[in-house]
Simulated scan of single mutants.
Amino acid sequence: MYEKTGYLDTQLKLFYLSDTMNWECPYHYHDFDKLTIFLQGRVTYEIEGQSYLLQPYDIVVVPAGQMHRPIISDTSVYERIIAYIAPSFFDIYKQRHCDLSGIFTQLSSHVLRQSQEAGNVYGTACRLRQAWAETDEDVSLLQETLFLELMIYLAKAIRKKNVDYVKTGSHNVKIQQIMHYINDHIAQPLSVPLLARQFYVSPDYLMHLFKGETGYSLGNYITTKRLLAARTLMEKDIPLTTVCYDSGFKNYSTFYRAWKKFYGVSPKKGISNTLSEGPIE
């Protein structure tokens, strides 16, 4: 199964990371939205079968549940600011007529790029970076305030189409198509033979290709996506039996076992949230 990394017990958590580690980050996902301000390094970001070559001050947007990983090219300094954002974070500002959710829902690409001449987004990102050099007791409040300012400017730039979307680089188009198909048909029957027929390849080749590109089996990917869909439905107080079938499981016992194995508790108990030490991504 794909690894779930990072846990959130607050509405917003910010991390500043700068390192020269030569490491390989596996594909993983989060139950919350993630935004990364890339500051420096030689990094390609892969998200749901698409790859993006990053430039300084690019903003990487990963909605909850999407598989992703950074690929570090060498031991150059990899510097970034990462934000974990709970869904309830946006609700507060919607009530104040400030809808920031479009950052994660109105995207043409997972990577946003604004020229330095454009001003607001870039300038606020620079000030946010500088805030990590502060040592005052109120520094965390300053960082959160600057991040909120960045979100407001970014949401406004997206609405007014004043931000550029970074095009994807070379990647396996077939895998990308398969991932899109699975996400679009998650409540419908999905199997290796069915997908092989859909994409005109043999089942063995399909499994080998998917495993080679992502490091995970096709069956595990489908199950993970169905569990994420089930979680979203559960948060809407939909009955568990309906959740089971609407997320693509054939029967409740299969859904129960998959949920219990993945989250460690029964569906009726919801989800166990434990705070982690933070990301390395």
Rank of each mutant, 00 (worst) to 15 (best):
D31P: 06
L228S: 07
L195C: 07
K269F: 12
V166T: 06
T242Y: 08
L107D: 04
Y252L: 12
E149Y: 08
Y153P: 06
I103C: 00
Y78K: 14
A187K: 02
W132K: 04
K261S: 11
N172I: 11
G278E: 11
G41R: 06
S108I: 15
S202A: 09
K167R: 14
V243I: 12
I178P: 02
L35S: 04
H110V: 14
D246E: 14
H30M: 03
G248Q: 01
S18R: 14
T124D: 04
K261V: 11
A118W: 01
I59W: 07
E46W: 06
M151D: 03
E144W: 10
Y181K: 03
E235K: 11
W132V: 06
Y2F: 12
I158L: 07
P26I: 10
I47A: 02
T242N: 01
G264K: 13
V43N: 04
L195Y: 01
K250Y: 13
L142K: 10
Y78D: 12
S73N: 10
P56W: 04
P203N: 12
V60Y: 12
A64T: 09
Y165P: 08
T254K: 12
D9L: 15
Y7H: 15
I182Q: 08
A229H: 10
K156M: 14
S73K: 09
A196K: 04
S272M: 10
T10L: 15
Y165L: 00
L8V: 13
L275Y: 13
P239S: 11
L240A: 03
G278Q: 11
D99S: 08
T242A: 03
D164H: 04
P239Q: 11
Y181V: 07
P267K: 07
Y57K: 01
L142Q: 08
P239K: 08
V62G: 11
A196R: 01
P189N: 00
W132G: 01
Y16W: 13
V139L: 05
E281N: 12
G219M: 10
Y57A: 05
Q198L: 10
S101Q: 02
I178C: 09
E137G: 11
A187Q: 00
L17N: 07
T224L: 04
S276P: 06
A131K: 05
C25S: 13
R197L: 07
L190M: 00
Y7N: 15
P56G: 07
E46Q: 04
T242S: 03
T241V: 10
Y165G: 09
K174D: 11
V61E: 05
T145V: 00
G119Q: 03
R80D: 01
P279V: 15
V43F: 02
Q11R: 13
Y57T: 00
Y252V: 14
N120D: 14
L107H: 04
F38L: 02
I37S: 02
K268R: 12
I271T: 15
I59H: 06
L14G: 09
T124Q: 02
Y245K: 12
K161E: 03
V111F: 01
V192T: 02
R159G: 07
V111L: 00
Y181P: 06
N172C: 12
M21C: 14
Q188P: 04
F89K: 03
E137Q: 09
S101A: 00
L53H: 04
F15C: 08
G49V: 01
